[in-house]
Design a protein around this nucleic acid. Structure first.
Lengths: 243, 243
DNA sequence: ACCCGACAGGTTGTTTTACCAAGTTTGAGC
DNA sequence: GCTCAAACTTGGTAAAACAACCTGTCGGGT
């Protein structure tokens, strides 16, 4: 009768231990109760305890030393830092979420750099969808999306209307392609006159240009997204563990 | 009698399956043999098979669907892409590895931005170690390292000599601090006259400025590293999976 | 003939019991 | 004081059972 599915025991144990670490019951540096103690306290079997502790170790909450015990490291600082990758948001969230203006949606000749990232003919054509994102009433970022013509056919990306759906989802449902990873390149350069005008920025401040080549699991390039950010208004922030 | 320790069985199974995927025996998209088949072929127990398949799934080689089976995704493209994080190399590899010139090593007043990253007094002092890295005979990057005075005491970082040891290792052995993760900020700006001269670059090309705040497991800032890259000679490349 | 549900058989996911191996600490006995 | 064995810890393997899920087939009904 219970429609709400209960989480597995080992996941419950994970959450219970996380709460104790966060509340200070198990302060950083201290030793966790041994497997045997946890088995008795929570009335579960050893593999269940081990599974929970394995998750905690892999997520960085604790570390373990064979023969000694498991030691609290504390809340992994990385868990809260949600990778704020540029481009990522443009691919997953609907265009209708962010106010902006579609400035281009047509088949164009590929810039050299984009052609390389798409592994396409140097002077081939592809579909370009370019959008000027507005934040707080001012132009903020210029986002360009290139995709091969065969991937744009039969999608709503060729229309002039803002997509009510994430590009990632749209392409998966319409064309059956699955995004796997992104190869990202970051450069800085001076804006062209047209770019400076569109973005409403001074001509003497540089642009941060982020190229993201989206690929499937086999490494085949699917789409390329370029994000242009005026450097006086934007920075990129990210966090990653050291080894 | 064998002193060389054999890897655990589940790890051997992981390697065996990885080889089969790479060699094309299990092509991408195909279904892996069921757990039962693997148990019989390799003469191991089910937990061993499951442990191996869990590793493969977590590393992105396969994906599993309850009730259907496990499906080959292919070699995870991310595994080979060694995160080429700027700053990372300066922290781990010895200074003597890369030719360059130490341009500054003294206690100085903290720039505002660095003070924020170090969570220090806005006008406090810290030790600055700045190095001009030379590649192919030309100045290439300007690397600055700020660390709190109490962390610089008793280390060889205050000397004018190139460190024969990685900074990360040096600080761990001398001061007992452990690097855990880095919060990275990327900006672009025009070079100052002094920077342009040191880097031997035109004054009208922008700089890519990378700030890396190194922290321990609890989130306390330890050191800040800044890498200045002339944008006409450098780009930043990275790869990451999309969820 | 067609559709739809029940059912059987396959798959992975989770939990339990049991035993052995390897590393660390402790203390008893010399 | 030193040595070594016992008792602790985590790591790995084996065997079994149940649950949840998917996909066919085989009915019966329309």
């Amino acid at each position: 009768m219970s429609l709400e599915s209960v989480p597995p025991k080992y996941a419950q144990l994970v959450q219970a231990l996380q709460r104790r670490i966060e509340s200070g019951t198990y302060p950083p540096g201290s030793m966790l109760p041994s497997e045997h103690q946890l088995i008795q306290e929570f009335s579960v079997s050893r593999p269940t305890v081990v599974a929970a502790l394995r998750v905690l170790r892999e997520q960085g909450w604790i570390e373990s030393q064979q023969g000694k015990g498991r030691f609290v490291r504390g809340r992994p600082a990385m868990a809260t830092v949600e990778s704020n990758r540029p481009g990522q948001a443009y691919l997953t969230s609907p265009e209708t979420d962010a106010p902006g203006e579609l400035v281009e949606a047509a088949a164009v000749a590929l810039p050299n750099r984009v052609a390389v990232l798409l592994e396409a003919e140097p002077k081939g054509k592809a579909f370009l969808r370019r959008r000027l994102v507005v934040r707080e009433g001012e132009p903020s970022e210029l986002v360009s999306l290139w995709l091969p013509l065969e991937l744009s056919e039969g999608t709503d990306l060729t229309s002039g209307e803002p997509l009510p759906q994430g590009i990632r989802q749209h392409l998966r449902s319409r064309k059956g392609v699955r995004f796997d990873h992104i190869v990202e390149q970051i450069t800085a350069r001076m804006p062209t006159a047209a770019e400076a005008k569109q973005l409403g920025m001074p001509k003497n401040v540089p642009l941060l240009a982020v190229f993201g080549a989206v690929r499937d699991a086999s490494g085949r390039p699917l789409v390329v997204v370029e994000v242009l950010l005026p450097a006086d208004r934007h920075e990129l922030e990210d966090a990653y563990p050291v080894r």
